[in-house]
């Protein structure tokens, strides 16, 4: 029970990071972006390629950090992967979504995002192969925290949780303490009015993609670190991430954080009563429960 709770929190942190970016894009561009989860794969594979390259600079970087299986090289690759993935998100908007936006409505955007997701996922599969990869061949041993009840935690999981919380705090400060954060919120509330007051709409949209992509990349690396790097990780994570945005209320960053933890914990607790085969269905059950109990989510507001 406690073990499931702890595992749930760790998975939840990863889902939260993915959901933050998604909810921001959904809030400002007003479409459900089904390709968002593929940005997690982009980030995970970017770090997978960059890690060995950085390790090539100096052999000392190849060693793991303390008890972690995460090496210095991969850790240094994370900010780079975040930048690359953020840039990928901006580029995708420039190449695809902007054009579709200009030609069709929100519905076309949703369809297009599915198409983009299919292309991204399978191109990654064609480049890196369909089989899973790992950042490190070292086996990450779990530390036993308590024998009764038996609770085991891997050092990697703790590191991931801490890093995820730091990233969330940084975003919180960015959104609540800077002019830039205010202008983003203004754009989300009322794009026309924000432009009148001198906010550059295009720059704001770019920033949202950049932030969303960067956080997704971090989530992807963390997922790869605690599970494995595989081309279909986006496919497996897209529904939990959407469930988190709905549970938190579409558009609410804090809701997305809470929603992510909720989905992660609920998913792990469900293993107590349901056979593991049903795990992929669980986010859907959460979505239905939220729609029944609180249609606009924990922090969402009714908006057409």
């Amino acid at each position: 029970m406690i073990q499931h709770l702890i595992d749930g929190v760790l998975v939840g942190a990863i889902i939260s990071l993915g959901a933050i970016g998604l909810t921001m894009v959904m809030h400002i561009l007003r479409f459900a972006n089904f390709s968002h989860a593929e940005l997690l794969s982009v980030g995970a594979y970017a770090a997978f390629v960059l890690g060995p390259l950085i390790a090539g600079l100096s052999g000392a970087l190849e060693a793991g950090i303390g008890p972690l299986s995460l090496s210095w090289a991969v850790a240094l690759a994370v900010p780079l992967a975040m930048a690359i993935t953020g840039a990928t998100a901006v580029l995708l908007d420039r190449i695809v979504f902007q054009r579709v936006r200009a030609k069709g409505g929100e519905l076309s955007m949703v369809f297009a995002s599915f198409g983009v997701a299919l292309v991204m996922r399978n191109v990654i599969g064609l480049i890196f192969g369909l089989s899973p990869h790992l950042y490190s061949r070292d086996i990450a041993f779990a530390q036993i925290i308590s024998y009764d009840p038996l609770i085991m935690v891997k050092p990697d999981q703790v590191a991931v949780l801490v890093l995820a919380l730091i990233l969330m705090l940084a975003l919180h400060l960015l959104l609540s303490r800077t002019t830039f954060g205010y202008s983003l919120r203004a754009v989300a509330e009322n794009p026309d009015l924000a432009q009148v007051t001198g906010v550059d709409l295009k720059a704001a949209i770019r920033a949202v993609w950049l932030i969303g992509g960067a956080l997704a990349a971090a989530a992807g690396v963390f997922y790869g670190l605690t599970n494995q790097i595989i081309p279909v990780m986006g496919r497996d994570l897209v529904l939990p991430i959407f469930a988190a945005t709905i549970a938190g209320g579409i558009g609410s960053v804090y809701g997305a954080v809470l929603g992510g933890f909720l989905v992660g914990i609920a998913g792990n607790l469900a293993l107590l009563v349901l056979p593991p085969g049903y795990t992929p269905s669980l986010p859907f059950v959460i979505i239905i429960a939220v729609l029944l109990l609180r249609p606009h989510g924990l922090f969402g507001e009714a908006r057409a």
Binding site: M26, A32, F34, V110, V238, F242, I246, I250, I287, P295
Partner: peptide, 10 residues
């Protein structure tokens, strides 16, 4: 409309 998109996918 996003809700229908996500729920039907789900």
């Amino acid at each position: 409309h996003d809700y229908l998109a996500i729920a039907t996918f789900g």
